[in-house]
Computed example of a mutant assay.
Amino acid sequence: MKTPKRLLPLVEEGLIDEVISQLMSGKEATVYIVRCGDEICCAKVYKEANQRSFRKSASYQEGRRVKNSRQARAMEKGSRYGRKMQEEVWQNAEVDALYRLSAAGVRVPRPNICHEGVLLMELVVDADGNAAPRLNDVDLTEALALEYHEVLLREVVRMLCAGVVHGDLSEYNILVGVDGPVIIDLPQAIDAAGNNSAADMLERDVNNLRNFFAVFAPALQASQYSKEIWAHYKEGSLLPDVPLTGRVVLDERPADVDDVLLHVERALEEDALRRMSY
């Protein structure tokens, strides 16, 4: 096929030898199958901000670091330079997450390089060597649904052990490769320790998995794995192989209002100090 304009710099740099075909076009990027030497890879070309349907809400941006205070101020003001920095942070989030998770043994595509807004990474394939289908396109039996749910739940735990929450996990960004499910699409991934919405996003990710697989395995519908996983994380007892039951005991003790107000006061003080440092 004709080389897309956004891939020309990588061809000229010798990073891509041939563009074979377009694989898919989604809300945030267009993905191509490419040849890099003897290896068949995929090239994820990020769309410009005004072309993406996925909006970068403040809950995703929280906790993401930039190089210096000048960049942070520019991003807050929304200047041209600030918007450029936001794009870099948005794209680098996926690259950083992939390297971090790959090193932790999480089932994600192996990243190669990110250059000129294009991420080169492993092409996930099925048993026939073709591009792997998305989970929502796979026919599932009850037994297979239970197996895949267990596998993916363990991957979510392994991700959290590495300090990462996907933030947008569903059957649409999971591929079923030759060795089972592989998690993809991570530009909205967040740092669990640095984001106040991490628990809510984890719950949404886990509940998305539950709701999808419960169509094939109804016994999953009553499970509460997200609360159980987060409880282990808060207590410092979360390990990749921690036993999970899907059941939680609710804490019905009265809330400590004074303690809550103290945490709010400390957060306001930290925010004031951070703004002064700019």
Score class of each variant (00 low, 15 high):
N112F: 14
W230R: 11
R55W: 03
C41R: 15
P133A: 04
R64D: 08
I190R: 08
V138R: 09
D271R: 11
V156M: 13
V106N: 10
A255V: 15
L220C: 09
R266Y: 08
R110K: 12
A214T: 08
I174N: 01
L153N: 15
V19W: 06
S197F: 10
I229H: 13
N50D: 14
Y99P: 01
L23A: 13
R100T: 15
C41Q: 11
Q86I: 00
V118N: 10
V34M: 09
D271Q: 09
W230M: 06
G117S: 09
A93E: 06
K77M: 15
N207G: 03
P243M: 08
F212H: 14
M75L: 03
D185H: 05
A272C: 02
V66L: 14
V257E: 06
K227G: 03
V34Q: 14
M24E: 11
A43K: 09
D185I: 02
G26Y: 07
A93K: 15
L144G: 01
E88M: 14
A219I: 05
A58Q: 13
E13M: 13
K234I: 04
K2Q: 11
A29P: 04
W230C: 00
L144P: 02
R266T: 03
E270C: 06
S25W: 00
V95S: 05
E142Y: 03
P4H: 11
V248F: 09
L144I: 07
E62S: 00
Y60F: 13
S57A: 10
G180L: 03
V176T: 03
G105E: 06
Q71L: 04
P243Y: 08
L146N: 12
N196A: 14
P254N: 08
C114W: 03
R158N: 09
H166F: 06
A131W: 09
G117E: 10
A193Y: 07
V124D: 10
L8W: 10
G236M: 05
Y60E: 11
Y60G: 03
T30I: 09
G194R: 15
G82F: 11
A104F: 05
V157S: 08
A103E: 14
L273H: 14
L209Y: 11
V34P: 09
V95N: 07
M85P: 01
E171C: 07
E269V: 09
A97R: 14
N130I: 00
P111A: 05
L8C: 10
M201P: 02
V165P: 07
L175T: 01
M85Q: 13
D139K: 11
D185W: 04
E150Q: 08
Y172W: 07
Q221N: 15
K47P: 01
E155V: 03
L186A: 08
L140W: 04
V164I: 14
A29V: 02
E88N: 12
S277G: 07
G246C: 04
M121S: 02
G129V: 07
C161R: 10
V157M: 12
L169W: 02
Q61N: 01
